[in-house]
C-alpha cells in the first residue's frame, strides 16, 4: 500500500473541515478526463459531508499526454495568490475540453482577478516549481495515474468513478 510522502500542510489547497480527522488528497490533472469525471463527484461529497471531511487538491499534470495541463495548473496556483484557487479549479474542470491560454485568461477575467498580477504569476518560476514539487511528491507517494486519492495518508485504490466508491470513504 502506497503512503503519502508529503504531509498535508497549510500550504496545501484545502476545502471542508480540516479538524474532521478525515483528509482526502487528490492528485489531479485539469486536462485528464478521468479527473473531469471525479470533479462533480467530489463536489457532491463535499456538499453532503463537507463538515466531516477535508479535501486537498495537488497538481499532477501529465504534460506529455495533456498539453494544457501545466498552464491550467499554473492558472489555479496564480488564482490562489489572489485567494481564488477553488474558483479557478472549478472553472478549469467545468471547461476542461476547451483549455487554452486564451480561454484561461478569459476565466481569470471573469473571476475578476487582478489581470496584470495574474499574467505575471501565471508565468512565474516560483509557481512552476510549486507545480513540479507537487508532481514529484506524487510520484514518490505512488501516484500511478490521475486521479489518485489518499485518505489520511493511505492510497485509496477502491475509487471506480462512482459516487458510491467515494462515499465509502465516509465510513472509513
Amino acid at each position: 500500500m502506497a503512503h503519502l510522502k508529503i504531509p498535508v500542510t497549510k500550504n496545501d489547497h484545502a476545502i471542508g473541515n480540516p479538524s474532521s480527522g478525515r483528509i482526502l488528497v487528490e492528485y489531479g490533472d485539469y486536462q485528464c478526463s478521468h479527473c473531469g469525471v471525479a470533479f462533480p463527484l467530489i463536489r457532491k461529497l463535499l456538499r453532503q459531508h463537507g463538515d466531516d471531511i477535508c479535501f486537498v487538491f495537488r497538481n499532477f499534470p501529465l504534460q506529455e499526454s495533456h498539453p494544457a495541463a501545466v498552464i491550467a495548473a499554473l492558472a489555479a496556483e496564480a488564482a490562489a495568490l489572489q485567494g481564488k484557487f477553488w474558483y479557478m479549479h472549478d472553472e478549469l474542470y467545468e471547461n476542461q475540453a476547451e483549455l487554452s491560454a486564451d480561454n484561461i485568461l478569459g476565466y481569470a477575467a471573469a473571476l475578476q482577478l487582478d489581470m496584470p498580477k495574474f499574467s505575471h504569476d501565471w508565468q512565474s518560476q516560483q509557481l512552476l516549481e510549486r507545480v513540479e514539487k507537487d508532481l514529484e511528491g506524487g510520484l514518490r507517494s505512488g501516484v500511478n495515474g490521475t486521479p489518485t486519492f489518499f485518505l489520511n495518508g493511505e492510497r485509496y485504490d477502491d475509487y471506480d468513478e462512482t459516487y458510491q466508491s467515494l462515499a465509502m470513504l465516509m465510513e472509513a
Binding site: 501529465l62 504534460q63 506529455e64 499526454s65 508532481l135 514529484e136 510520484l139 501516484v143 500511478n144 495515474g145
Partner: peptide
C-alpha cells in the same frame, strides 16, 4: 499506457 505516461513524466528524476 498509464504506467508509461507516468514514467515519461518521471524521466527528469
Amino acid at each position: 499506457s498509464d504506467q508509461l505516461a507516468v514514467y515519461n513524466e518521471t524521466l527528469k528524476y
